[in-house]
Nucleic acid binder design. Structure first.
Lengths: 123, 123
DNA sequence: CCGTATCCTAAAGGATACTG
DNA sequence: CAGTATCCTTTAGGATACGG
């Protein structure tokens, strides 16, 4: 599977497990919020419209496990939990930006291809 | 969800649908192979060890729909189908490379975070 | 307030058989 | 050769209820 593949894309095979950890449905939106400021659970929940409690918890745990987000419990009376982005999480910003730039540059091409594909006659 | 989020990550929200199309389980490995040379269905299947026929077909259709891969039927006696990467697909190489570079630079950090997380006491 | 636990449904994934 | 169709098993996702 790897002998003569292009080196750049070949690396994709090795790095995919980590990419998959990051490319979770809500992860980048969570990072989007946390990049601005530390945020509490229910605030995140409000900001990410449509997220369920379960999904948010799962995404946060995953980000925390991978060192991109840190979780701090503030022992106030109704307990507060604040999530913030780590330096490691922050370092993802630049490479992400490159990918978003590609998407912006080519979104029209992709959508045109989709329309073309979807409109061609079925069997 | 978007008023005060960091601009770079905020873009993530808008571009995620397209990222998701590309970040499919087998997509980058398929692109890895096609980037080197056009390849036929069963050859791809052999190169991507562990892929099922169904999964490979689905991934190829998706890549084709998004304009990253083209499919050409060669009407020989047992019919042959050759897949190749398009210029659009090729243009993904550089931004991907940036992401892989990040992964390479930080894989140790991520794995350390994972070990640390996994080894801490449960309830 | 911040979750975990449970239950249920929906969707994904694999194996096998069959067609142009 | 290159798929599609079918079935079945596994996993993910959502809703609800409860605990620290």
């Amino acid at each position: 599977m790897s002998d003569s593949a292009d080196p750049v894309f070949a690396e994709a095979c090795a790095t995919r497990p980590i990419i998959d950890e990051i490319a979770n449905k809500w992860s980048i939106m969570i990072l989007s919020v946390l990049c601005t400021q530390p945020t509490r659970f229910n605030m995140l929940r409000r900001r990410l419209e449509g997220v369920t409690q379960k999904a948010l918890t799962q995404a946060l745990r995953r980000l925390e496990r991978n060192g991109l987000v840190s979780r701090q419990v503030i022992a106030s009376s109704p307990v507060a939990v604040e999530y913030s982005i780590t330096p490691l999480g922050h370092s993802l910003k630049d490479p992400m930006a490159a990918l978003y730039q590609w998407t912006r540059d080519h979104v029209a091409d992709v959508q045109a291809a989709q329309r073309n594909f979807d409109q061609r006659p079925g069997t």
